[in-house]
Amino acid sequence: MNKITQLFNIKYPIIQGGMIWNSGYKLAAAVSNAGGLGLIGAGSMYPEVLREHIQKCKKATDKPFGVNIPMLYPNIEEILNIVVDEEVKIVFTSAGNPKTWTSFLKSKGITVVHVVSSSIFALKAQEAGVDAIVAEGFEAGGHNGRDETTTLTLIPMVKEKIQIPVIAAGGIATGRGMLAVMILGADGVQIGSRFAASTESSSHLNFKQKIVGVKEGDTQLTLKELAPVRLIKNKFYEDIQELYKKCPSKEDLVELLGRARAKKGMFEGDLEEGELEIGQIAGLIHEILPAEKIIHEIIADFKAAYQEKSKFEF
């Protein structure tokens, strides 16, 4: 039995990333109904909006689903209380110290997974008592690790250090990518960008169409002084690069970023002034599809690649 399918009681070891402005209840429910684990992305939701999405997700699926919570969230205590009140059984945490809330969540019978970008943080998460970790390489979209460690190198290094299950993330959108990281030691995968370009994603159609047009080299990790983020190169990105030529202070960067840039880009569809977060693997995403079809394609591709293993014999 696969450790991840056992841990979450799901059919396939595929977790949908809890992406801000993309991961509403419709996407989470669709992924869970198709045999994966859907996640509601709390990072872009006010507390009561999150409660509404959890309640709607319960009605839309009888399968397991979870909530992704960035721990730097200003209303973190209120968010966690809502998750407990609504009897959510799975929580993925990110962007913070897992020791802060893991024991609280575990005491409520919740399965806890923490997202890390290095083996050092993976060890800290294991020590904090999480049930599994997501090891995310810097190919991933959105906020990212500062070390620029790729998934190819991160997974075996994390696997060497920890005993709990490892979920690979960053640069995975196909069954072949899934097989590759599992051969490297991952027990399952978390996929973001491919599901951002799904029918059920809550992001704007403009953003989804932009994703399928992305080519190799069209994204870049930037704003490391604030929080490293991988963006599609657009006018806002170019404005950042122009500002860098003037040796800006951290305050200058904060002023340019302003507020609600991610909402403007991904949710409202402003492709010029908005922050468009997506992973490098977007260069392999060529059409917007229903989540169920995405999962079926990934599994079919995984099985086909696995059947070709004889080509490795020499």
Rank of each mutant, 00 (worst) to 15 (best):
Y46F: 11
I69H: 04
V49D: 15
Q55A: 11
E48L: 15
F92P: 02
F92C: 10
L50W: 01
D85E: 14
K63E: 10
T61L: 05
P74F: 09
G66D: 04
G43V: 10
G41H: 07
E52Y: 10
I90M: 06
L80K: 06
R51M: 13
V67F: 12
D85M: 03
K63I: 08
I82N: 09
F92E: 13
T93Y: 01
G41Y: 09
E48T: 15
F65H: 02
E87V: 00
P70F: 07
V49A: 14
K59G: 01
P47D: 09
K56M: 14
F65M: 01
V88D: 03
V91T: 05
Y46I: 01
L72G: 13
K58G: 05
S44A: 15
K58W: 06
L39V: 02
E78P: 00
E48N: 15
F65I: 01
I79G: 06
P47Y: 03
P47H: 03
D62W: 00
G41S: 05
N81K: 08
K63Q: 14
E52R: 13
V84Q: 09
L50D: 07
N81S: 06
I69Q: 04
V84M: 12
G43I: 09
I40F: 10
G41F: 09
K89F: 00
K63H: 12
K63R: 15
F65T: 01
I82A: 11
A60D: 06
I40L: 12
I79Q: 08
E86A: 03
P64L: 08
V88H: 00
Y73F: 15
E52D: 14
V67P: 13
P47V: 05
E77T: 14
P70M: 14
A60T: 01
Y46S: 00
P74M: 08
V67C: 12
I79H: 04
I82W: 04
T61S: 11
K56Y: 07
M71T: 11
T61G: 05
T93M: 08
D62V: 10
L72Q: 12
S44D: 09
D85C: 03
R51H: 03
E78M: 09
Y46V: 00
L50S: 02
M71V: 08
N75T: 10
I69Y: 04
I82E: 12
E86L: 02
L80H: 02
T93W: 00
L50I: 04
K58N: 07
G43W: 11
L39T: 02
V83R: 03
F92L: 14
K63G: 07
P47F: 01
D85K: 11
I69P: 02
K63Y: 09
S44N: 12
I79K: 07
E86M: 01
I90E: 04
S44G: 11
D62T: 14
L80A: 11
V91C: 03
V91I: 12
T93L: 10
L80T: 07
E78K: 15
